[in-house]
């Protein structure tokens, strides 16, 4: 095992580490440095201004507004998405007409349902966002959603959707839920399938109903998967960049009602007079929020693992 072990290790690690170091680690560290300067890219040297950017950020209403939208996304999108995911996974796996050998029965065609539900997951978010932008077309006759509403006699419910600052963010949340539910249906179904049949048999012999079986057995045993999914979904909600950038009116509008921190960062750096220092400070703020969320979620979900 000895011959040339270290040469081999170095040979295998050098290229991946170099690439990763230059393109990921070094920009990551530079971000902290840039956030302490008033750099706008025009001069090669960066003016050190201490924590000024952070101080300005604290008094920047647009930043707080954007952060609030991220928090709203973080509160609602994961709960609704995972709720739907569990609900449909339950329907798929327990809703069958007859009980199978595992005590619960999948509905007929559950494979087909899963294939269709998973469609949005393989599509680019770009495609999804553009498609829904068309669906939300505000015109009462031309828009897909609006014309659908009028054709079923619900013209009173017609909206200008993304053009209405009071509901634009909700419209975007709906798309995020739509795009992600299928993934969690498949994930939770796979989790449910890995629960051994004997556990269900025992419940069956004890006379437990399907619903009871689900809530007392399936759900507790899925706990780890749900906790992981929660963190995944939270990270998606913290981002939301592509959805808002492509769908919203005036990139974050109307009236900044859909702006989110990643988008504000992008606009600060690459659209409005290149305030790189400020944008970098927003990046650090985002990192902090994301880490706090991840740590809190892991703390809350920590519990003894049930091995099976």
């Amino acid at each position: 095992m000895r011959h040339g072990k270290y040469r081999f290790i170095i040979g295998f690690l050098a290229i991946p580490l170099a690439l990763y170091g230059v393109l990921v680690i070094s920009p990551f560290l530079q971000d902290f440095q840039i956030s302490l300067t008033s750099w706008s890219g025009l001069t090669p040297e960066k003016n050190f201004i201490g924590l000024d950017n952070y101080q300005k950020l604290m008094h920047n209403d647009l930043f707080w507004k954007a952060l609030w939208h991220n928090v709203l996304l973080l509160l609602f999108v994961p709960v609704v998405t995972l709720g739907f995911g569990l609900f449909f996974a339950f329907m798929l796996n327990v809703g069958g007409r007859r009980r199978g050998s595992a005590g619960v029965a999948g509905v007929r065609g559950s494979g087909l349902y899963k294939v269709i539900f998973f469609f949005p997951q393989v599509l680019s978010i770009t495609i999804i966002a553009i498609l829904w932008q068309q669906i939300y077309n505000p015109d009462p006759e031309n828009g897909m959603l609006n014309s659908l509403l009028s054709s079923v006699g619900l013209s009173s419910l017609q909206q200008s959707w993304l053009g209405d600052s009071s509901i634009a963010l909700i419209c975007i949340m709906v798309v995020m839920v739509w795009a992600n539910v299928g993934f969690y249906v498949v994930l939770f179904s796979a989790g449910m399938a890995s629960i051994p049949g004997e556990i269900y048999e025992a419940a069956l012999l004890d006379g437990a109903s399907r619903v009871k079986t689900f809530f007392r057995i399936t759900l507790p045993l899925l706990r780890d998967t749900v906790a992981t999914a929660w963190v995944y979904m939270g990270i998606i909600a913290m981002d939301a960049f592509i959805y808002v950038q492509l769908m919203s009116v005036n990139v974050g509008g109307p009236d900044e009602s859909t702006d989110v921190v990643p988008l504000l960062l992008y606009k600060t750096a690459f659209r409005d007079n290149s305030q790189y220092g400020m944008a970098a400070a927003m990046g650090v703020a985002m990192l902090i929020v994301t880490l706090v969320f991840a740590i809190l979620s892991m703390r809350l979900s920590r519990r003894e693992r049930i091995e099976f």
Partner: peptide, 16 residues
């Protein structure tokens, strides 16, 4: 590297 948001490094990555 899985833990931090990519959008955070856009500015430095652009210059790198």
């Amino acid at each position: 590297g899985m833990a931090f948001p990519v959008v955070m490094v856009l500015v430095p990555l652009f210059f790198v």
